[in-house]
Write a protein that binds this DNA or RNA. Structure first.
Lengths: 123, 123
DNA sequence: AAACTAATTAGAATTATTCTAGTTTTAATT
DNA sequence: AATTAAAACTAGAATAATTCTAATTAGTTT
């Protein structure tokens, strides 16, 4: 674990946002950390391969990075905003339905976030 | 709905594979349809915007296209293979847990497919 | 058939990401 | 402290998937 990778891991673990590589890069620069975007990508890949972070893929958005603690997501179908939600772990229930071993699962609930709801009401 | 879009929609609806734009393009060429890859992309985008097809995103793979009939997916964490699975619709149950209206959800179950299991046993 | 519109196309552009090969930093060893 | 080796980092090129642009073709309507 390199120093930079650790900084990046801390950012991800300390934030409830779901940051892109670019956003992490900018946040580091704000904090006067001298780092290149390539290193951000390299570190993210390394952290991901070690299972220390997760990726969240949403159509139309660059990869966003997330802490590993189990949780699910609300995805705003208008603006793409991701919000964590803590539902009960369904692994055991799913395993009963699936003929091969279940490693994990990924649940994204599509909704319209409050902010987009408001905007739409205004129009 | 253009003639080409209809051909593409038929391919997607007639197949349990989860084809990429490129695969759809190649399949059309096999069938002697004169079409460009750009038109395949354009048509897919149009079909998607009309809600006539869905996209499946899996890390490391190009977008794959899918019929809209509600179902869930098994995703092989080794090879990326997608398999349909028909679990009970959870929308109502999820709605009880979520403070905003639930439009839909996307459940991907990560597993190791039979073929990859076999390969691993051999090694 | 001329005129208009819609569909299609080739290829350029874009975007996010990975790769390459050189440079810098760090740590270990003399 | 100088030398060496390894690891980390970097700029910029390369890549891959997809979208965009502007021109062409096909289909319709007058």
């Amino acid at each position: 674990m390199t120093k930079n990778a650790e900084l990046i891991l801390n950012i991800i673990n300390a934030s409830y946002d779901h940051l892109t590589a670019e956003q992490i890069y900018l946040r580091l620069k704000e904090d006067q950390v001298k780092i290149s975007l390539a290193t951000v990508y390299n570190s993210l890949t390394a952290l991901y391969e070690q299972g220390l972070i997760k990726k969240v893929l949403v159509e139309g958005f660059p990869d966003r990075y997330d802490r590993v603690r189990r949780h699910d997501h609300l995805v705003c179908s208008r603006c793409g905003r991701l919000t964590d939600i803590n539902l009960k772990d369904m692994t055991a229930a799913l395993q009963k339905e699936v003929p091969v071993p279940v490693l994990s699962y990924d649940l994204k609930i599509s909704c319209i976030c409050d902010e987009c709801s408001k905007k739409e009401r205004r129009n």
